[in-house]
Nucleic acid binder design. Structure first.
Lengths: 254, 254
DNA sequence: CGGAGGTTTGAAAAGAGTCAAAGGTCGTGG
DNA sequence: CCACGACCTTTGACTCTTTTCAAACCTCCG
């Protein structure tokens, strides 16, 4: 079952589980803390959060951080790398529901039922901090600022999902891809990288899956945008992304 | 601005705001408590929740319980009636992101930014309990069971959104409507009504908007399902809904 | 350096959208 | 309480975007 196909779980592959202590790194010193759960926490709250986050996991490209159906007990915060989350229809069709970069919190959908509801697959070699949820909830009761952070993260996830629904329900193919690229560019910018030059971590098929399109449609749209000077593209490498031009083509959002 | 077009706010239309005390009703005695925030709370936790929920609001058909952009300070729990929530694209296109029946909690997407991100419009004369969020969060810190309920509700919302993304991204028109009807039937059943006989509270256009389809497509599909004996439909009245038959036509989910 | 997997492009098909028109229903005001 | 108007629904005919199928090429990893 899912248990065995999953990448390095704490119990099964201790080599890939890293004690935070060993690395002498903590949320309080993490360079992505302003993108992650610690946003807005003061020094004392951060110290308490340090006590919650005790391990990390390395996940190789293609491996799963979590599988739908797994028992839920921890959230994972992406530290390095990129993940995709996917939900499965009963007939086997799969929908990618998001791409998560550093700072994102994975597993929030598992709280409700006590089982993970989606797969999280690494798109490149990645690293995530493990947050035992019960422990986190406990600390959140004592630290209002952390409670607020957690509420905000859950709420932000809902807002993001609504934006994707809007894209899937109302935008045409060209608008969806334009919005997706603008969004990717902005997420790179938020992480201190150029918004207009980056490497796609996902295939055309994965972009299409996420946007409710076929891979051929995505490929044709890249060609069109390239022809029209909205970007330069060589395989997965995107250059000179014209954010404003694309925003106009997107009906302005994703 | 939005403020003035909104239905009966506490400050502006006290006539429509009802003190819970006056009605001598509480969460602890509410007949939908097993569909709402109180799920799984014990007597003592319920008593504390009673202290949070002090007012109700009546909202007439077509009026807004909340508007995108409004300052966020309260959640609302649907007591009677039905709402739709909609998000707006910058160019004015609108996507319905959900239909909420009794027990649903509205406003969760506003926690992140402190502003509501969607409109909530009553589809029939409705009534909602008002939950001041700061107060609720405070009580949740003291009452772990309530904290857990709140986390679960937020998480469940994320799960629901993912199912809609799956429908919008991967299902064909016929499958989307079939899944929608099965889902509606089951929600009626969960509320003690027949799963196969109900009145639609939304127009064909609204169903289409929610499912990423045009109203004509929805109308044609109703005719097709009716022709094939999967349901009987007279305007908004649906009878003899064949749940199993429709489930098969849905690729099995929504 | 060999092959699997990923990408591009074309041509044809299909599903859903658009436009149009007519009939139905509901709620409100007279 | 009835009539009118606004809005909703149905159905047909046609259009068009996107999918499907196919083939060739690329490229990157082991």
């Amino acid at each position: 079952m899912a248990e065995s196909s999953r990448a390095d779980r704490v119990e099964h592959a201790p080599a890939n589980v890293i004690s935070i202590r060993d690395l002498r790194t903590r949320c309080s010193r993490c360079d992505i803390r302003e993108l992650c759960l610690p946003v807005g926490l003061d020094a004392s709250a951060l110290r308490q959060l340090d006590e919650v986050v005790t391990t990390r996991r390395r996940v190789k490209r293609g491996e799963a951080l979590q599988r739908a159906g797994d028992a839920f007990s921890t959230l994972c915060a992406v530290r390095v790398g990129t993940f995709k989350t996917t939900v499965l229809a009963p007939d086997g069709r799969e929908q990618i529901t998001g791409y998560q970069m550093s700072g994102a919190l994975l597993g929030l959908d598992g709280i409700a039922s006590g089982r993970h509801r989606c797969d999280a697959i690494a798109l490149e070699d990645s690293e995530a901090c493990v947050l035992p949820f019960e422990r986190l909830a406990e600390v959140a009761r004592a630290v209002p600022a952390l409670q607020q952070s957690l509420h905000r993260l859950l709420s932000r996830e809902i807002g993001r999902d609504q934006q994707l629904m809007l894209a899937l329900g109302k935008l045409r193919a060209e608008e969806r891809l334009a919005a997706f690229l603008v969004n990717l560019g902005e997420r790179h910018r938020a992480r201190g990288f150029a918004a207009s030059e980056f490497v796609l971590r996902m295939t055309r098929a994965e972009i299409g899956n996420y946007l409710g399109l076929e891979l051929e449609t995505v490929s044709r749209l890249f060609s069109r945008f390239s022809r029209e000077g909205l970007l330069q593209v060589e395989g997965r490498i995107v250059r000179r992304l014209d954010i404003e031009g694309l925003r106009k083509r997107s009906g302005e959002r994703c």
